[in-house]
Design a binder for these strands. Structure first.
Lengths: 192, 192
DNA sequence: CACCCCGGCTAATCGAATTAGCTTTTCAGC
DNA sequence: GCTGAAAAGCTAATTCGATTAGCCGGGGTG
């Protein structure tokens, strides 16, 4: 029995592939074991169990997302950066819908997870800071941007958007609403 | 053995309670059977299985949400309606986080589900129409509003919003951004 | 060369889903 | 009120995945 050369990271690698291919329900230790050419119990030498594997997956996904988002945003500023941020986030989520679903609601106390989440949020801060916001307003704006884009992606992948209307155009509309709204003190006057 | 008096609806009732109390992972046929005082296989007389039960749950949740949202929005218009819509959606999702998580990404071909989803979306249309939008813009605006509010709720319940900043204030900020942005042709000019 | 730990394995347990097939309650119709 | 069928329960049995226990070989270290 030659060593399979597994490691926690390798297990997460395999898990990611299975998540992409079969979705969250298809993500079983059995499937990962088969994919890595090992018996299921052997996986316990590398991860504590399925819940922990999901945590590691969330961390991996968030870290990779942060890295990719950071790379795309780098060298841009203001509206240009915001558009790039939004577009790339949506593109990533479309390419890996199951990863997005897994990561969107993930929450753990674990410092490693916290660090990853912070890394991702920091990209949004970098983008939004270019709009001249400060203090609480900056926090509000970052939360608003992240909420809008994650929500759009979730609805797009779920029940929403049955109308024939082009979703790209809707995304562009939302992007404009955000770009226009990110000001130190959003106009308190109502529409109309 | 007296009849337990179950029905598909009664099973969904029990499932809802368990979902609320133990979350999506705790939602098992075994748990529902115990709660309804019946043996697990008996549930199959009312629902096809766990996947179907989840579908029924999603339908129920979306229908109830639509009803509640409709009631709150009724009699209001314009900005007032929008604020009420956003606030009530967030309140509902906070009260029943697991329901929101289950329904947010649900998607089925089933006409019953489609009808429920449409009912819910129609509330948003009723609200947004008050902003004088037409055609595609109306669709874009509805999608934007729904994306923003669902995304906010998801992030609020998940990893987001670790900063000390008050989330109510952030929600108010997002609400203002939306209210200001819902115009026939969102200002294409960048911020700053 | 002996030892010890690591990473894999097999066997076994557990819990939940689901299927099969039996029994009893209900209740519509005579 | 009696009767037969459908509905609604039940128990037994199967399957599958997670997880635990305990065994074993290999390889690097002292």
């Amino acid at each position: 029995m030659p060593r399979a050369g597994l490691s926690p990271d390798a297990v997460v690698d395999a898990a990611l592939e299975i998540l992409d291919a079969r979705g969250s329900d298809g993500l079983t230790l059995k499937a990962i074991a088969d994919a890595t050419g090992v018996a299921a119990p052997s996986l316990y030498k590398h991860v504590r169990g399925l819940p922990e594997l999901r945590r590691l997956l969330a961390i991996r996904i968030i870290n990779e997302t942060a890295e990719q988002m950071g790379a795309v945003v780098m060298g841009r500023a203001g509206n240009d950066a915001l558009k790039a941020y939004l577009t790339e986030y949506r593109r990533l989520a479309s390419q890996y819908p199951h990863r997005h679903a897994l990561a969107e609601r993930a929450s753990y106390d674990d410092p490693t997870f916290t660090a990853a989440a912070e890394r991702l949020v920091n990209v949004a801060y970098a983008v939004v800071r270019g709009f001249g916001l400060e203090g609480e307003d900056l926090v509000h704006a970052v939360r608003s941007v992240r909420a809008a884009v994650t929500g759009f992606v979730s609805l797009e992948q779920g029940l929403g958007y049955r109308a024939a209307t082009d979703t790209d155009a809707s995304f562009a509309y939302l992007s404009r609403v955000l770009a226009a709204g990110l000001r130190p003190s959003p106009t308190p006057s109502a529409a109309q």
